[in-house]
Simulated scan of single mutants.
Amino acid sequence: MILSDIRRYLQQRQQVCLSDIALHFGASQDATRGMLETWIRKGKVRRLVSQVACGSSCGKCAPAQMEWYEWIGDRPQ
């Protein structure tokens, strides 16, 4: 997983949860979050944290499914 791979993945999907990104690249969520932080510092990605769960109140939603990232940089050509 390299930064350009993450860029392309986010550009194609616009908004993706952390667990989906990590699963797609076969990486840990911590490693994925670290790579995303690079794009955040460059102003290309925004971290979105959902305050609302799936709609139930069971509290079983994984935190990584509630942590979303959105590509806000240049769109693909």
Rank of each mutant, 00 (worst) to 15 (best):
A62T: 00
C61Q: 12
P76A: 11
C61I: 08
D5F: 02
G59P: 02
M66C: 10
Q65D: 14
G26A: 08
S4L: 03
S19F: 03
G73Q: 02
I2G: 05
A62H: 14
V52F: 10
I72Y: 01
R13W: 04
C61M: 10
G59Y: 03
A53V: 01
R47H: 10
P63R: 09
R13T: 07
H24Q: 15
C61R: 06
Q65Y: 13
P76M: 05
D30C: 04
F25G: 06
S50E: 11
D74M: 01
Q15C: 06
E37W: 12
Q51E: 12
G26F: 12
G34W: 01
I21W: 02
G59W: 02
L23R: 15
S28C: 02
C17Y: 13
C61A: 11
K60D: 14
G43R: 04
C58Y: 00
Q51R: 15
M35E: 08
E70P: 01
F25M: 03
R47S: 06
C61G: 08
I6R: 01
S50K: 14
C58E: 09
Q11A: 08
T32I: 04
R75L: 10
Q14A: 07
C17R: 07
P63V: 07
G55I: 10
E37K: 10
I6A: 07
V16R: 08
I72S: 02
G43D: 05
P63M: 04
M35H: 13
R7C: 04
V16E: 09
T32R: 04
S50C: 09
L10A: 05
L36Y: 09
Q29W: 03
L10Q: 06
A31W: 14
R33T: 03
Q14I: 15
R7M: 02
